[in-house]
Design a protein around this nucleic acid. Structure first.
Length: 932
DNA sequence: ACGCTCACG
DNA sequence: GACGTACGTGAGCGTA
């Protein structure tokens, strides 16, 4: 039967998302044998679809059919009410990668597969059902979702496929006490805890139906609410009228969803055996493919009992043979590699350069690999000799393609969204190519895969990973480049040495990827890798390339001022000590203080040297003037050498800006680390140091804007450990340390003194660090017993804290790792050790979920930021753990602050619901000191 | 290369 | 009961 949809036609609409969730929860966690990819929900989904097709043959068979999916988590209902479906748990780790496969499955069955950004599946179903009814045809909605019941009637019915139960108008009345046209009114009153529709407090479906039947419809009821006899019910309806109207808008389905297809496009098509059977075979569904093959009159496809990729020959059995690597020197050879890459759909890439600073260095060559043991190197600007002879050192080696030609041949592939570029620390290669005008993507990064799985266990450098996971020691770079004065850059390395080294890097990267890719699922960190690691790479690459303007003259003037003050202090110090010595030498200083001057309190450390740290000198300052002068000198020395002098060396000649490098996989907790230079430890606590921030300036006509999370770690602690007093204090906007002090020391807030507050603050931070009596005593310089008393009282007032600490330690002991709220795993291999190591490990385990969750939050904000500020003349420059620094054209500061704050304050959404709101403070100015 | 010291969150 | 401790980083310097 064909022609325009109308009388005699029957449309089947399958609620695909509901199918998947049912399948997922009904089945054990199956994985595909060959590679460990979770596949249970896809299997259940396919079985259900196949059963639907088989059960609906004959007289009542559908003429038209479609499977409808939800797309994305944000719909127009979230714009109406930001808490809509806000209580939903994050999608299970194992389910997420299966969602795209269910779309592929639907198409393999040759059934129309429809979804639309910004709308729920229910809206599309509503629109199609109404169209079918209007055309005079029939429609069966295969779902048990009660939200769809408002559509029933006039030829539209629902079918609960699990219970094989048809629901018509009477069925709806049974469920809701009203007929379909009044269902939304009842739902608006009753609310829905699953979707977080508020409704009217205290009113359920029974009462709602009673009221609607009495007053006719919702609007009449709300208008005449004053007539209701029961006082409580009356008050509820009057006080919550707006909330009820909002609820109605939330549950009312959009029957006008704009669609780019018509009912006629949904005509039922027979499955194509040549598409469906290969798909089922690829999924390794043995039973189902046999059944399907039988019905379609074909032989069942063969499904090999393949081993996991990690054991597959290309990983374990292909030996490393550096002699086999290919040197690519002409266009024909390069084209063969490009063709192979398109055949595979992915490629491991590595770049060789003249240095480690991507902002300065030059591209020397590119290596590629698509299969284990098969890699090539494309040399570009290697010199004919090492350059240590006097002649011809600038001459290029023979047999190299022109750089431009290579880049233009590779560019389409490197930028092709269908070709996955695999690298080890891809941020580096991304930046190298970005310098050459090539935007590489999409990417996978073996360093970050290792980090997601093995943070806390080992480092994630390629050499270490290769030894550990491939059992192979890579060719070391040192002998190629030399060391010290005679060291050369990679372009001076002869080709016969460069090719094996460079190509091996790509080979190793590819093999690591083959090992790690399937393991991500098994370790349960796919979501961490996909949402917190991989997407951060291009964002950081862009930030690093942006850099921040640093004013050399400001630094230079400060350096001179510091030098003068230090010289004066040195004279004073020599006078006090009675002789000249190296003030910068802790060893010499210790001998003067404790041997020659015989001051008390000299303690030798492990190495036999006296300790002369700031805390020691501060104690000694009461006995003698010398330690105080040393402290002054040290502060200036630190500021000068580490900041005002060293920073100038990092100003890029071309850009006039400082380009830090962020390590993504450095800190075990998920924090970033900043190097070359470290811009995450620019002074702020002392007034003198803070002025260094005046040298970090906005470009002419621009402003620096800083946004930082307020007390994010304590807020996360309040949430994780579930401390009502802390949560309430944050909700009220109280001074959290003062509140803690008030609670602990029984001092009313209005009588709070700075000293009491200071103690409470130390305890609050101590808790985050895994508090100990000894540590707190040292920090506060009070007797250990007194410190222990504070801690005891703290636990007494906030008992959840102790529970959190005990539970976290127990979890770490049992599992060998702890987790952040976003699922990041931090391994704690030393938790079971004996001796002092165990103490360290326990405190680190207590700290890691808190510090790590905060790190996850700001990572999420950073990943979303480029899109959020795309329309503004602004760019993100720096991250300092809980702060983001931007540069924006003058006049657009307020717009930037609005946009960035919105992203930061909601960065946890929608994966994690926090019981404490995140708040962000903002500042702006011509330099970083003003902005912060 | 390693430990000490000190800058930040 | 003793042990020896606040969590996470990076850089510059002196000393081997």
């Amino acid at each position: 039967m064909s022609g325009t949809f109308g009388k005699g036609h029957h449309l089947h609409l399958i609620d695909g998302s509901a199918f998947i969730f049912r399948a997922f929860h009904a089945l054990p966690p199956l994985v595909r044998k060959s590679d460990g990819v979770p596949i249970g929900a896809v299997a259940g989904f396919c079985n259900m679809v196949w059963k639907m097709i088989q059960d609906n043959k004959g007289d009542d068979a559908p003429t038209h059919a479609a499977v409808i999916f939800d797309k994305g988590s944000h719909t127009f209902r979230n714009d109406m009410y930001d808490l809509y479906k806000a209580n939903r748990d994050a999608m299970p780790e194992d389910l997420r990668p299966q969602m795209p496969l269910t779309r592929v499955a639907t198409e393999a069955f040759n059934i129309a597969c429809k979804e639309k950004e910004g709308f729920e599946a229910d809206d599309i179903i509503a629109t199609l059902a109404v169209q079918a009814r209007a055309a005079g045809g029939r429609c069966t909605i295969i779902s048990s979702d009660k939200d769809l019941m408002q559509l029933v009637g006039g030829g539209v019915e629902m079918l609960d496929a699990m219970k094989n139960l048809r629901i018509d108008r009477e069925g709806v009345f049974e469920k809701f006490g009203v007929y379909p046209e009044r269902v939304v009114d009842v739902q608006a009153l009753a609310g829905d805890s699953v979707d977080n529709v508020p409704g009217a407090p205290g009113i359920g479906i029974k009462t709602a139906a009673l009221l609607i039947n009495e007053y006719g419809d919702l609007e009449s009821l709300l208008e005449r609410a004053g007539e209701i006899k029961q006082p409580k019910r009356r008050e509820t309806l009057i006080n919550h009228a707006e909330q009820i109207r909002l609820s109605r808008r939330l549950v009312l389905l959009d029957e006008q969803t704009p669609l780019d297809f018509t009912l006629d496009d949904l005509e039922v098509r027979e499955p194509d055996a040549d598409v469906l059977l290969p798909f089922l075979a690829e999924m390794e569904f043995r039973t189902l493919s046999r059944r399907v093959a039988e019905v379609l009159g074909r032989d069942a496809p063969a499904i090999a009992d393949t081993p996991a990729i990690a054991d597959a020959p290309q990983v374990a059995e292909v030996a490393f043979d550096t002699a086999s690597y290919e040197r690519v020197g002409d266009a024909a050879a390069l084209q063969r590699w490009i063709d192979r890459i398109y055949e595979f759909g992915y490629v491991a890439v590595d770049t060789e350069t003249t240095g480690l600073d991507e902002m300065i260095c030059e591209l020397v060559g590119i290596s590629l690999a698509v299969e284990a043991g098969q890699a090539c190197y494309i040399p570009l600007i290697h010199k004919a000799s090492r350059g240590d002879d006097l002649f011809g050192s600038d001459e290029l080696a023979e047999g190299q393609m022109p750089v431009e030609q290579v880049l233009e041949m590779l560019r389409p592939m490197l930028e092709d969204p269908a070709i996955l570029k695999i690298g080890q620390n891809m941020k580096y290669d991304l930046k190298v190519f970005a310098q050459l005008g090539i935007t590489v993507g999409p990417i996978d990064d073996t360093m970050l895969m290792s980090y997601a799985m093995h943070a806390g266990l080992h480092n994630h450098g390629m050499d270490a990973l290769c030894e550990r996971y491939l059992g192979h020691t890579p060719i070391p770079i040192k002998p190629l480049l030399g060391a010290g004065k005679s060291a050369v850059t990679f372009d001076k390395v002869p080709l016969d040495e460069a090719v094996p080294y460079a190509a091996e890097d790509a080979d190793i990267t590819l093999r690591l990827w083959q090992v790690f890719k399937p393991q991500l699922h098994k370790v349960g960190v796919t979501q961490v890798y996909e949402t917190l690691e991989r997407p951060l790479v291009p964002v950081l690459a862009q930030m690093e390339r942006s850099g921040i303007k640093v004013d050399r003259d400001t630094l230079s003037r400060m350096s001179n001022a510091f030098a003068q003050k230090m010289a004066a202090l040195e004279d004073e110090i020599y006078g006090l000590a009675g002789r000249k010595f190296n003030v910068g030498s802790p060893k010499q200083l210790g001998e003067i203080l404790f041997d020659e001057m015989a001051l008390e309190g000299g303690k030798k450390g492990k190495t036999g040297a006296y300790a002369t740290g700031a805390d020691v000198l501060e104690d000694l300052a009461t006995l003698h003037e010398l330690p105080a002068r040393i402290l002054d000198w040290r502060q200036l020395s630190k500021l000068k050498s580490t900041y005002t002098d060293a920073l100038q060396e990092h100003i890029n000649k071309d850009t006039g800006r400082v380009h830090t490098c962020y390590s993504i996989a450095g800190a075990s907790t998920g924090r970033l680390a900043s190097t070359d230079p470290n811009l995450q430890n620019i002074p702020i606590r002392s007034e003198e140091g803070r002025r260094i921030r005046e040298a970090f300036v906005a470009e002419q006509g621009k402003t620096l804007v800083a946004l930082d999370y307020s007390q994010i770690e304590l807020r996360i602690l309040a949430h994780i450990a579930d401390i009502p007093a802390l949560k309430e204090a944050f909700a009220r906007g109280d001074d959290i340390h003062a509140m803690t002090a008030s609670e602990m020391f029984d001092v009313p807030m209005e009588d709070m003194t700075p000293d009491i507050r200071r103690r409470a603050k130390a305890i609050n931070f101590g808790v985050i660090y895994g508090i100990s009596g000894f540590g707190l005593a040292r920090n506060l310089r009070i007797p250990r017993a007194e410190a222990q008393g504070f801690i005891d009282r703290y636990f007494e007032r906030f008992p959840g804290i102790r529970t959190y600490m005990d539970d976290t330690k127990a979890f770490a002991k049992e599992h060998g790792y702890v987790q952040t709220l976003f699922g990041r795993k931090i391994n704690t291999p030393n938790i079971g050790a004996k001796g002092p190591q165990a103490g360290f490990a326990a405190r680190a385990a207590i700290n890691a979920p808190i510090q790590g969750t905060a790190a996850d939050v700001i990572r999420r904000a950073m990943i979303r930021m480029p899109a959020a500020i795309a329309d503004l003349p602004a760019r993100m420059l720096l991250q300092v753990h809980d702060e983001l620094l931007f540069e924006v054209d003058e006049g657009h500061e307020a717009a930037l602050i609005n946009a960035a704050r919105e992203v930061m304050e909601n960065a946890n959404d929608p994966v994690v619901k926090l019981a404490v709101k995140l708040t962000v403070d903002a500042g702006q100015g011509k330099n970083w000191a003003e902005a912060h």
